Amino acid sequence: MSSSEDPPDFQSWVEAHGDALTRFAYLVIGDHDRAADAVQDALVAACQRWQRIVVRGSPDAYVRRCVVNADRSRWRRFLRRERLEPDPTLFADSTTHPDTAGAVVLEDAMWSLCQQLPSRQRAAIVLRYYDDYSDADIAAVLACSVNTVRSQIHRGLATLRTKIDTTEEATTP
Rank of each mutant, 00 (worst) to 15 (best):
C66N: 08
A61G: 09
R74T: 03
A123E: 00
L117Y: 02
R65A: 14
S73R: 15
E107G: 08
D135E: 05
V67P: 01
S94Y: 06
E107W: 15
H97F: 14
L90V: 11
D108T: 13
I125N: 02
S73P: 03
L117T: 00
L90I: 11
I138L: 02
P118T: 13
C144A: 05
R56D: 09
I138C: 07
C114N: 04
W111H: 14
A124R: 00
D137F: 00
R76A: 13
I138K: 00
D132N: 13
A124T: 00
M110N: 05
R150C: 04
D132E: 15
L113E: 08
C144M: 01
R83E: 11
R155C: 02
L113G: 08
R120W: 07
S58I: 00
A140Q: 02
V105F: 08
D132A: 13
D135T: 08
V54S: 09
N69F: 11
Q121V: 01
G102R: 11
A124M: 04
S58G: 05
H154F: 09
R120L: 10
E85S: 08
E82A: 15
L127T: 03
R52A: 14
S119G: 06
M110W: 11
T95S: 13
F91H: 13
V67N: 01
R81E: 14
V146I: 08
R83V: 12
D93M: 04
D60Y: 06
C114S: 09
N69D: 12
A70M: 02
R64V: 05
Y129N: 11
S119D: 05
R80S: 14
Y130K: 07
R65M: 09
T148G: 01
L127Q: 02
A123D: 01
R77E: 06
V149I: 10
T148E: 07
V68P: 02
A136R: 10
Y130Q: 12
H154D: 09
L90E: 07
M110H: 11
H97I: 15
A139L: 04
P59Y: 07
A143V: 06
D87F: 07
D93L: 03
T148L: 00
D99A: 13
R52F: 15
D132R: 08
A61F: 07
W75H: 14
V126I: 09
V105E: 12
Q152C: 06
Y133K: 02
R64M: 08
V54K: 04
L142C: 03
T95W: 07
E85A: 12
L113C: 07
I53H: 03
A70G: 03
C114A: 15
V126L: 02
V104N: 10
G57N: 03
H154W: 07
T96C: 13
T95Q: 04
F78T: 06
T89Y: 13
D87N: 15
I125D: 00
Y133A: 05
P98V: 11
A143F: 04
F78H: 12
G57K: 06
L106R: 10
Q115D: 13
R80H: 07
C66Y: 07
A123G: 01
R83T: 12
L127A: 10
S134Y: 08
R52M: 13
Q152S: 10
T100I: 15
A139V: 01
T89V: 07
P86Y: 10
S73Y: 14
Y130H: 13
P86A: 13
D108H: 12
P86C: 06
L117H: 01
A124Y: 03
R122P: 01
I125E: 01
F78D: 11
